[in-house]
Write a protein that binds this DNA or RNA. Structure first.
Lengths: 212, 212
DNA sequence: ATTATCTATAGATCTATAGATAATGC
DNA sequence: ATTATCTATAGATCTATAGATAATGC
């Protein structure tokens, strides 16, 4: 007798369910930390089906990782906030970057870690970088030069500024699981901490580029 | 006939050689990425000997990890740099923290990663934190308050300042393997980049706490 | 008929242990 | 005698594939 299948809410049914389950598990424990058996268990199918749809575990992983990369790039495609002062624009960029990470707190650790372990992923990001970074820094670079000439900020490169912001924002989420555990924080307290830290980062960055 | 044993240069011979090889391998690829077979291969002994000295892989790993933790704590036990101004002291602290990481560039990723995956490690760091953080922030907190009262810096907590410095410094080394690969840097260029980035971080931090 | 799903299993790990042999310290 | 090292192997994974069965679309 046929077994009853649980209807999963994906658009392409089982294939999507597998991708979705793999996504969650890989995000938690990375490529090496997850077995296809475990993915199957989470989906509610047998392990062979994973290979029917995705052939290899590495292949399934790559699909997940590519999704994450394109999301990460989208974080840097900023709205232009026309009419705002440079300072207000910068403030909004920092905050929106922080907020996007807050909604995907496991993403930074996942990506950094796989880049270290997984040769395929570093090729993927190399392509992504070369295609996007010059374009992304270009307009910021111009703004920074104008502001500097007008004496409103010190001299700093777009790349340094972006690294500063990224460092401060991402580090918050890299250490989040530790903080939660070490200080025994509940979800509510964590959220409050986020807001406080976000403000401090904005203050730090804005102050750090004031003219000398 | 007895096989010729290669003499390894450790003080306790084989036991130390195993710890040393395990250290290097675990630092590269973490607990899950390394097998006892591989450690044995690197040491030049058979795999059973690992268990003879350390009983389990987890046990050997813990020894390695404890060493790393105590090193990390030592980074924050600062010399007092008596006689220097607060600004100069802070500058030296940032630079010495950066330099220590530069000599152990794989350490931050390793520790963050294991803390996420390995329940034992997070208990170890919890203990470490509770024993050390209050003591470490205490004296800095006092200095910051004095400087603020004297109008030489803005109001900022010792914890926030330490997180800022740690974020900026550590992020450099988390993304180092990526940078090297994506931009195809050689060792010399990497070193130069470090120096430039270190200066930028010092400037950023010192600027970021100037009075408003 | 074709596609989706399942059962079963081969082959490749990997950790830990048992038991044999060699080296070392009295 | 005791300690160090080795060989061999049990038992537990885990990935990928082969081949059987069920579901679906004409």
């Amino acid at each position: 007798m046929a077994k009853l299948k649980e209807v999963k809410g994906g658009k392409e049914g089982m294939e999507f369910s597998i991708l979705h389950a793999a996504d969650e598990l890989f995000m938690e424990r990375g490529f090496n930390g997850v077995s296809t058996t475990e993915i199957a268990l989470k989906v509610g199918c047998n392990q062979a089906l994973i290979h029917y749809y995705y052939r290899t575990k590495a292949n399934l992983f790559q699909k997940v990782f590519e999704n994450k990369l394109s999301f990460l790039i989208s974080l840097f495609e900023v709205d232009d906030y026309k009419g705002l002062s440079f300072e207000d624009k910068l403030r909004m960029r920092i905050e929106s970057h922080f907020d996007a990470l807050a909604q995907n707190p496991k993403l930074p650790m996942f990506v950094l870690n796989e880049l270290k372990n997984n040769p395929i992923t570093i090729d993927l990001i190399k392509e992504t970088f070369n295609n996007n970074v010059p374009y992304l820094t270009g307009s910021l670079e111009k703004e920074l030069q104008e502001e500097h000439k007008a004496g409103r900020i010190r001299k700093i490169s777009a790349l340094d500024l972006m690294i500063n912001i990224t460092s401060l924002n991402i580090f918050t989420f890299l250490t989040l699981p530790i903080m939660e555990y070490v200080f025994g924080l509940d979800q509510e307290t964590t959220k409050e901490m986020f807001e406080v830290r976000k403000k401090e980062i904005v203050t730090t960055v804005l102050n750090s580029i004031r003219p000398i």
